[in-house]
Design a binder for these strands. Structure first.
Lengths: 151, 151
DNA sequence: ATATATTACTTTAGGCTTAAAGTAATATAT
DNA sequence: ATATATTACTTTAAGCCTAAAGTAATATAT
């Protein structure tokens, strides 16, 4: 053996590494397919999905809160989506600092296509688990949802 | 309901989002603590951990294969670690293209400290699961280890 | 009314990441 | 021996990400 942690700690490390690896593998598959088959990226997909869930549009700050990423990050992604004509910005007439972002018709059409593919990919990847197993997995992950803060 | 997927697909999507969120949350905690408490980053930690596992050192290409990241990526991280005196590069006397990278004494001391903290953090985060539960989680994740490739 | 604080957003600097192109050294085929 | 291919590594361009600083507009306190 290479270390001298308690058996429990070793097991915990193993489970975490497995969780990280599994999640990372699946995410890598999604990124790869979005790129190769759709010419887009996961962050772009996430922004478009957020806008799809909010058909009336979102302000930049709402978008960054919804996606839990920084404000500046959203600025960059929305800029690039706008350059490609997939989202539209409209100035708020009440507040000249603010703007509303929503999917353009083109962006909406494209997202419906992406979302369908995305769901198929996930469905396929998760296929090995039956209903009971995925319920169990959900329940176990639920217990890790709010990581303890102090050692 | 907001969509019209088969119930199974919806469940699969929910489980995947939960998996992604849980893994991301834990990773965020680790990044945060590495930064705030140790002034380092997860990629730097990963490189140092790889070198700790290979005391004789690794070549740049071996390092990038071990970590499953690109060659150029490793160049950047190792550059910064070397600037901080945490790793050492030694030219291969047989092959003038190649070099050996290993932890410096300073890097080794620092990594032992980081590794101990890291293990404590994981141990604490995984605390909610008892042995049986973590075994079950391992087994379920195992089934997702090699995502199906074709729809 | 005016000063102060807050809010909405962008810009900047720096690190992480990849793919692709570039450089130099080594290995192979003829 | 020489041409070709491969290998080891770095550089570059572009996107993603954050924290911190910056800008302009709005809200609040007095």
């Amino acid at each position: 053996m290479h270390n001298h942690y308690a058996a429990n700690t070793r097991q915990h490390l193993r489970v975490w590494l497995k969780l990280l690896k599994t999640s990372g593998n699946i995410e890598a598959v999604l990124r790869e397919r979005l790129k190769r088959e759709c010419g887009t990226t996961l962050p772009r997909f996430d922004v478009m999905a957020a806008l799809d869930h909010h058909p009336a549009g979102l302000r930049m700050t709402e978008l960054s809160e919804f996606l839990m990423v920084s404000n500046g990050n959203v600025t960059g992604i929305v800029n690039r989506l706008a350059e490609d004509g997939l989202v539209e910005r409209t100035q708020d007439s009440q507040d000249r600092r603010a703007q509303m972002v929503c999917l353009s018709p083109k962006g909406n059409t494209e997202f419906q296509h992406l979302a369908k593919l995305h769901a198929q990919w996930i469905d396929n990847i998760m296929q090995p688990l039956n209903v009971e197993q995925s319920d169990t997995l959900m329940a176990l992950l639920e217990q890790l949802t709010e990581p303890e803060v102090s050692p």
